[in-house]
Design a protein around this nucleic acid. Structure first.
Length: 414
DNA sequence: TGCGTAACGGTTGAC
DNA sequence: CCGTCAACCGTTACG
């Protein structure tokens, strides 16, 4: 084994020396093991196992095809800047932590920075989810057609109405709630741009507003405030629709919970599959992300049953690469080349699961949802009990993980 | 030495 | 179609 590494390493050094010597030097700065690991990574890349002929450039980045690249951290681990670690690694981090392994050791073993380990574990402890947050996207619009219509009606009924009065009426009439009510400035903009000559001159409005209620505070109504007391601390985890979760300890709304319409709640933000929910009380996954994995693995109990509107899209957009991956490894936001290129190697399965809340679900995943749940749901038992079991994964699951990571598991199954 | 965290550079997706 | 913005990411460095 070691001879193979060393042989590979020599070949790699030769390759790098002949090509991009600078790229490799920075990687081989730690101990032999890490060096060999990095060497194997490089070798795999060179041989096409990882990168299909891609190569490191002078800044240490790995160009993967025409699209993207991976990088190697100080521990010799491969990562993609800006992208979440593969779900399998995240899961592994949590599992090792539950086995009592120190974060620093987890960091070294998995070659993931200790900051990342810390972050993932902290998030897990706080939310119960190993999954990353939703990347990209925007806050949901608050000026829905229905809101605009209401504003128009208010304005037509009382041309002299002020924006702040409209705002209050939107709340009073239940058109909006405190989380999705437009700001006064937004209402003013609507009056100005969409309703136009119905609105009165702004100076009049502002003058009256200042005179009548100069110190009116909107803070308590400001949209995009955290609807849950747990959130202002910076946590951005949530259920998918910003809906309070009755199950308790992990109900943390996302940072921008303004799911302002039923369609937003049901059609976009929520992906809970009622058929996959049973028996998972109190779990609040980030349903926006890793859609199919999450739905299967971290179902929620709250009754916002989503319309998985984009399951088909997902299959198209993020086709599941053919592989022998465990079933909980879902399609990924990475391009297929990225998936193979960066998170592969010994783990041919360092493939991140489906990611975007916008693109949800996967037929492949639904087929295997039972397995997914089995593989990923250890958290429930861990959290349901007073004490977390030493290893919440079954032997079979350990074997799956072992096969994924190519790592030994310090458990009874290994 | 281990760990939490801010800064940083990056990706992503809605607008 | 493209730029902007604001969310997220993991790594790194610092205390």
């Amino acid at each position: 084994m070691k001879n193979r590494f060393i042989t590979s390493f020599k070949a790699i050094l030769k390759f790098c020396f002949l090509n991009k010597r600078e790229a490799i030097f920075g990687y081989f700065q730690t101990d032999l093991e890490l060096t060999l690991h990095a060497a194997e990574t490089v070798r795999s890349a060179i041989e096409g196992k990882l990168c299909h002929g891609n190569y490191p450039n002078t800044t240490g980045k790995w160009f993967l095809g025409k699209q993207t690249y991976g990088e190697v951290n100080q521990l010799g681990g491969v990562f993609v800047n800006g992208r979440p670690l593969p779900n399998a690694i995240r899961l592994r981090i949590v599992e090792l932590a539950q086995l009592g392994i120190r974060p620093c050791d987890i960091s070294r073993q998995l070659r993931v920075s200790h900051g990342c380990v810390s972050k993932i574990l902290a998030r897990y402890n706080e939310t119960g989810s190993i999954l990353p947050g939703a990347i990209g996207g925007s806050k949901p619009r608050v000026t829905t057609p229905n809101v605009v219509k209401s504003i128009r009606e208010y304005k037509q009924g009382d041309p002299g109405i002020f924006a702040w009065e409209i705002r209050d009426r939107l709340l009073a009439d239940g058109v909006c709630d405190k989380y999705n009510v437009p700001s006064v400035s937004s209402i003013s903009r609507i009056l100005r741009n969409k309703i136009g000559n119905l609105s009165q001159p702004n100076q009049y409005e502002s003058g009256k507003q200042a005179a009548s209620q100069p110190s009116l505070s909107y803070n308590h109504l400001y949209p995009y405030t955290y609807p849950n007391a747990m959130s202002p601390s910076g946590t951005k985890m949530s259920n998918s629709a910003g809906v309070p979760v009755t199950g308790g300890h992990v109900s943390i709304p996302r940072g921008w919970p303004s799911a302002h319409t039923v369609s937003n709640i049901l059609g976009i933000r929520a992906f809970m599959d009622p058929t996959a929910i049973a028996g998972t009380e109190g779990y609040t996954p980030k349903m926006e992300d890793w859609g199919s994995v999450n739905r299967a693995a971290f179902p929620s109990t709250h009754g916002v049953n989503g319309i998985d509107k984009s399951s088909i899209e997902t299959d198209i957009k993020y086709p599941q690469p053919s592989s022998t991956l465990p079933s909980y490894v879902a399609p990924c936001a990475y391009s297929p080349s990225n998936q193979y290129g960066v998170y592969s190697g010994a783990a041919g399965s360092y493939v991140s699961p489906g990611h975007h809340w916008q693109a949800q679900g996967s037929s492949a995943m639904s087929i295997h949802s039972g397995e997914i749940h089995s593989a990923m749901s250890f958290k429930h038992s861990a959290r349901d009990g007073d004490r977390k079991p030493p290893s919440p994964l079954s032997k079979q699951q350990h074997e799956v993980l072992s096969s994924i990571h190519g790592l030994s598991l310090p458990t009874s199954s290994s």
